[in-house]
């Protein structure tokens, strides 16, 4: 049963949902911030349009910095700006930032507790035709391991917009990632969003599906399929990977006894690993993971790739059945 307080769109499964790219939520969120907070500044590494920071650039040209194809410098400049009281957002593709400037993120930003927000666009497998070089599937792992860091994976347009605003208000280094493609909008402006608090979207007591990013919708679809078989799955939108909502996860393990994690990321080091670490310490329970199976991606259309690599509702259903056999 869908949680009423989550204020998801009406008729979730009865109609084709409107879609929008989550990166548009980032771009629109920045414009809101630009109006609201004069300290917000934006940097990009030659990707103003495709990371959707061009609207901010056009509205607030004095607070926009084009650094060219130089992600290490971008991160360092952002650190310097933050140290002097600005709230810089660095935008690039997730494979380049934090992929290529991790040392700068570690030393100039995280160790320095510089208030820098790193936006990783084109994250996940669904980048599609650009191929494996551009499909960031390791970014969660390399950011969540850093002390002082906050890591967020919003699930659709609205949540990306809310996350952008919430991260500007949060003091400290942060990384958030979003995909390239248009994805269905299944939350609404009324859907609550709180950093660090996993969100129960569906009640259930037989198992819990813990998901992040656009695959949260696949988790909801999987739960619907399972319900037809008499299996009630709780669905948890774990949008904040760090700090992890351990309380919600322990409650899920205790109350439902089995979990499936779902993410567009390598099976090692991402959401699944974070959940496994927390539960191993606090409340061990059988777990299965839906994730990239320690492989690089390839060119193809987004839906073809998700299908090939098993990041779909049917794959989640299959893992749910498997984890229930282990319970």
């Amino acid at each position: 049963m869908i949680v009423t307080e989550a204020h998801l769109v009406e008729g979730l499964f009865e109609r084709e949902l409107p879609s929008k790219a989550p990166r548009d939520g980032f771009g629109d969120g920045l414009v809101v911030l630009g109006e609201r907070n004069p300290d917000v500044v934006v940097l990009t590494g030659d990707l103003a349009d495709s990371t959707r920071v061009s609207a901010f650039r056009d509205r607030f040209p004095d607070r926009f910095f084009q650094v060219g194809v130089a992600e290490q410098n971008m991160m360092g400049i952002a650190a310097g700006l933050a140290i002097c009281g600005k709230i810089p957002f660095c935008s690039s593709y997730a494979t380049f930032s934090p992929g290529r400037n991790w040392d700068q993120l570690r030393v100039s930003v995280c160790y320095s507790e510089a208030n820098v927000k790193v936006a990783g666009a084109h994250a996940g497998l669904s980048v599609g035709p650009d191929g494996a070089t551009h499909q960031a599937l390791e970014d969660i792992a390399i950011t969540r391991v850093l002390p002082n860091m906050t890591v967020v994976v919003p699930c659709d347009y609205h949540q990306t917009l809310k996350a952008t605003i919430a991260l500007a208000e949060h003091r400290g280094p942060a990384y958030f990632r979003f995909g390239r493609e248009r994805t269905p909008i299944f939350t609404t402006p009324e859907t609550p969003f709180e950093l660090g608090r996993a969100q129960v979207l569906r009640h259930g007591s037989d198992l819990t599906i813990v998901a992040c990013g656009p695959l949260v919708l696949e988790a909801l679809k999987a739960a619907r399929t399972l319900a037809a078989e008499g299996i009630e799955a709780r669905v948890l939108n774990c949008h904040t990977i760090k700090p992890l909502d351990v309380e919600a996860l322990v409650a899920a393990a205790r109350e439902t006894g089995a979990l499936v994690t779902v993410e567009e990321h390598q099976i090692h080091g991402g959401l699944g690993s974070a959940v496994a670490e927390a539960l191993a310490l606090h409340h061990p329970a059988p777990m299965e993971m839906v994730a990239m199976p320690d492989s690089f991606g390839e060119s193809g259309r987004a839906e073809e790739l998700l299908e090939k690599w098993g990041l779909t509702a049917p794959a989640i259903v299959e893992r749910a059945r498997r984890v229930l056999r282990r319970r």
Binding site: G76, I77, G80, L81, D103
Partner: peptide
């Protein structure tokens, strides 16, 4: 890393 940090400060 320092020159980038300094550039950010000078921009600020």
């Amino acid at each position: 890393q320092g020159l980038s940090q300094g550039v950010g400060m000078a921009l600020a």
